[in-house]
Design a protein around this nucleic acid. Structure first.
Lengths: 351, 351
DNA sequence: ATGAAAGCGCTAACAA
DNA sequence: TTGTTAGCGCTTTCAT
């Protein structure tokens, strides 16, 4: 039953030729007779030969594998990254080794170690925290590393992410143009660049419009990460904060949130207070997750270039793997503000 | 710069011992002197030795890798499977090779081939369609295969999924208990077991309640899969069907949908017609996706045991890998109906 | 055009 | 306890 796997040697023996000839015939090398090549190919098919990628990689010195390190696949943005990266890699003949870190520093370091052991040809990683020198080390060990979505300037690594700063600026601008004079921003409490960038863009828009706030308009949402596996972000986390805002007396004209899930929490808080967007408050989010267009009211949000980031990142990585040296490349791709009813102050009722 | 990677041989040479001794010392074999072991370990650290998993696997004959084949990581249910499986595998020392098939039969077959080439120790797969004999073949080649979520009785493989039949029965029952006499079910148009099972459970509940419908109460939602990478399901697909229902004259008392995203489309169609749940129609979904609790009204839906399925599947696979033979095991795990306002006909306004 | 020999990095016999 | 030999399956010299 457990018939041992067919190897080159088996074919060679069965045909009375050398292993080596079989190898050349099967890998399409030229120095092989037309007739022998056909005979070998047929015998290979007959015996059900399947090349052993492992052995091949060992001798070739290339694993033909890319490593992908993700904090949480349940985040839809990362789910899309996984898809596009797997695809793009496969097109170039690479398999994908996936590691999940769950925002754990230990997991992050363990992931780097695992990738090193396997000798993957390159790694794409959403780093957990600012302490990511192990990624630098991996890179220096000869495994090129490209960071996704989260940038740490201290790391001398390529980075492909979103231009959250500008995106936040535009979105905020849009709300201000809609008449908002007092605004606030709800952001998760992680020390990562997307949060920092969105915050910066938001603040700049406020400053440019001469809207100095009384208190700090940026509210940090403590995220409970116990169930990180199951959830992207928990709307409930934002709900609690939004309740405070709503019951606080002076309702802002507009509320921005760092991700669409937080908007769900804001909507609920508003509802429960008998308020609604855009009548009482304008609301804007980030992510354009599939549900955003179907909420009531449909949510104005920033559509992120997930596919672009995935393919660009793989391309950049492949280039590094080919040995192109030079300064690390830090790219922030543009996103698109999708305006929907939650921020439309104008006339028209929903069509 | 590109300093070649440190190998056992390097350590051996540097210490004047045999490669073999180094191997034993580092892998914790007993037949090694206390002193030499320490010396070797230190030298290994000093030189920055990292074991080569590839070489190790080649000689051991085990890749220490599991294959995971998923149709679409953007489906939150599958995203959770990815997380739990990666975790559970890692706990047992296995790395994960991820393949994405995008509902393509070719992709499905290619995935099986890739896993065979790499000689993974086992595979977990959400098969694309009914034609999955390549998975049977992979299994017979000595790579145990466990199917996830979608079962094809023709395949002689282990299967771990959801008891959708019973779940649909219970959910339907709940709607009927709420007073619904006419019901319909919106399901995507794929020939897969989850759809078939939910449909069966739904029909059975109707029959048991003596609710023979005039026409067929099960509506097939044509899903446009062009953008499969980006989306889980498209609410718009269900929206179009729901519009027909709403404008059709005789509104059913309750609408069930095969996934929560379809409920979004139904909600919109209702809204636009000036209708709402639960007043005019009861609505129930599947998935309990994070947004479900935050819709207005909050959506009654079936919470799927994603984590259970993931861990159970890995455990079953590991058992198979250890060589336990026997009939394939087909398990359908129970889910939980989460009742929310969309199906509450009773008194209370939302708290 | 083909074969023989060597080696990728590691582990598992078998000796010593 | 340690070293020697052999081999995992494959590719790449180098001869022939």
């Amino acid at each position: 039953m457990e018939s041992r796997r067919v190897t080159l040697k088996d074919i060679a023996k069965s045909l009375g030729v050398s292993v080596n000839t079989v190898s050349r015939a099967l890998t399409g090398k030229d120095s092989v007779g037309e007739d022998t090549r056909t005979r070998i190919k047929e015998e290979a098919r007959r015996l059900g030969y399947v090349p052993n990628s492992m052995a091949r990689s060992l001798v070739l010195g290339s694993a033909m594998t890319l490593g992908l390190v993700i904090t949480n696949p349940s985040n839809p943005f990362y789910a899309r990254l996984i898809s596009t990266i797997e695809q793009r890699g496969r097109v170039h003949g690479y398999s994908l080794m996936l590691l999940v870190t769950e925002e754990s520093q230990d997991g992050d370091e363990a992931a780097a170690e695992t990738l090193l052991r396997w000798g993957v040809d390159g790694a794409l990683v959403v780093p957990v925290q600012s302490d990511g020198e192990h990624w630098d080390r991996l890179d220096e060990s000869g495994v090129p590393v490209v960071c996704l979505n989260r940038d740490f300037p201290a790391l001398e690594l390529d980075f492909i992410g979103v231009d959250y700063d500008n995106a936040a600026y535009e979105a905020t601008r849009h709300l201000i143009d809609g008449g908002a004079r007092s605004l606030c921003l709800l952001e998760e409490d992680l020390p990562i660049s997307p949060v920092a960038d969105r915050t910066a863009g938001f603040r700049r828009a406020l400053a440019d419009a001469g809207l100095g706030a009384a208190g700090d308009p940026v509210l940090s949402v403590p995220t409970r990460r116990q169930e990180s596996l199951a959830l992207p972000w928990d709307p409930g986390d934002a709900y609690r904060i939004a309740q405070d805002i709503v019951s606080g007396g002076d309702l802002p004209d507009a509320i921005m949130v760092g991700n669409d899930y937080f908007a769900l929490g804001v909507y609920r808080a508003l509802n429960e207070a008998g308020l609604s967007a855009p009548r009482d408050v304008l609301v804007g989010g980030f992510g354009d997750h599939p549900f955003a267009a179907y909420l009531s009211p449909p949510l104005t949000t920033v559509r992120l270039p997930a596919a672009d980031i995935g393919t660009t990142a793989v391309d950049v990585l492949l280039r590094r793997m080919k040995g192109s040296a030079g300064q690390p490349e830090k790219r922030r791709l543009p996103s698109e503000l999708v305006v929907r009813a939650s921020s439309r102050t104008g006339e028209s009722p929903p069509t």
